[in-house]
Design a protein around this nucleic acid. Structure first.
Lengths: 223, 223
DNA sequence: TGCGGTTGTTACCGGTCTGTGACCGCCCTT
DNA sequence: AAGGGCGGTCACAGACCGGTAACAACCGCA
């Protein structure tokens, strides 16, 4: 399990590294935002501990950037307990946050919790079923010729959830959970999202062949 | 849907009960840890709302105990936003937590989300008995040749309830509970539903062989 | 600040599902 | 033999659901 620790306070970064290594993690460090992105791209860690205040590139920005390309779990570190920071952090896709000062035990506990949650989530990588190939952020469609369509974050999650279970029916509830997380979405949101995804993926959106509805059960993906 | 509410603050417990009843739950309450475990064992609720601070037996302890024996969804209530509490709670297997004070709407929303997750987690694979195979949203019938008939939500639940208990008789009341939930259906609705299901599943609906009626007892499914 | 893209909300339409009431016939009791 | 309870059958209307669409809210970015 590889963890990337990003903090410009060298002393603190050392403490964190030590703590995480003791907990069995392999640790990489970075001390500014740009380096963080670089390390992330090169070493593809399983978990990122990210300070909010960073030179060169702000923690929020780093978080957004990473989140736009992957779901690597991120734990934010913040000095202030300002509600606003926390809320914004979580909105940007951080999986958890810790307010300084904090105990090593707490960091480890959170790291493990976040990883547990992430593991429950879905494996990554290109996912091909029939003429449809899902890659992070877009689909490739092979019918006569080859098209590439960009997908939004939610559309991607929906398609992934469906393709991973093909050709089984996935219940609306499971889908809602997979896309918006617990206490997140509702049926009308799902309905709308399905509609939008079909517009992009179906040869004839008004007569869907890939994303089929099974009354009383849910949706399924078919080649 | 039965909810167990555990809080030693009687006034708050009342408010919670009222809220949950309004949302359609049947509510049981307990005011200390020991009583909570007892109520849980006897009434087997579908959901538990558990305060952290309890007399006699601490909320954490109750949570661990329950988790070691079952997967009943648990929502923790905590006064402080203390991170430690939350982390420990989740580590012990709570499914969600709410920090007091909170709005009734929020409690209901989380309760429903947690239940949805629990329901989605159940393995709902194909269920085969004799020449009849039940899949999400449809039945497959193997008599000379193979037919596939779509089922509605309620029809599916009825058939599932019957097939899961084959070849035992299931009482009308249990069926009503399984299909409409408590405080849901009545006999005439069940009667009607049986009729509709037979139309789809029986070779000769006017002389049922699979879905049989046992006077004074209920229905049973036979191959 | 305004822009474009993404997401949530609401409304509407058409089809299906389902609750309801009515009627029939059977069986059991009286 | 009459009557009542129960299950089976049927028709119907309102509820519900999914697909479609337009709009509002929001966010990151220029």
């Amino acid at each position: 399990m590889k963890a990337l620790i990003v903090d410009d306070d060298l002393a603190l970064a050392d403490v964190l590294s030590f703590t995480m290594r003791r907990a069995g993690f392999e640790v990489i460090t970075a001390h500014d935002g740009l380096a963080a992105l670089e390390r992330w791209r090169e070493d593809s860690p399983d978990l990122i501990v990210l300070d909010l205040n960073l030179p060169k590139l702000d923690g929020n920005h780093v978080c957004r950037q990473i989140r736009s390309e992957s779901d690597t779990p991120i734990i934010m570190l913040t000095v202030r307990a300002e509600e606003d920071d926390v809320v914004r952090g979580l909105e940007q896709g951080a999986d958890d946050y810790i307010v300084k000062p904090f105990s090593p035990r707490q960091l480890v506990a959170r790291a493990e919790a976040v990883l547990r949650r992430a593991r429950a989530a879905l494996p990554r990588g290109p996912l091909a079923v029939g003429e449809v190939t899902l890659e992070p952020g877009r689909v490739r469609l092979r019918r006569n010729g080859e098209t590439e369509v960009p997908l939004t974050r939610l559309e991607g999650r929906l398609l992934e959830a469906l393709m991973l279970n093909t050709p089984q029916v996935v219940s609306s509830d499971s889908l809602i959970d997979a896309i918006w997380g617990p206490s997140g979405g509702d049926r009308s949101m799902l309905k709308q999202l399905v509609y939008r995804l079909r517009q992009k993926v179906e040869p004839d959106p008004s007569d869907p062949t890939h994303i089929r509805h099974v009354p009383g059960a849910g949706y399924l993906f078919e080649a």
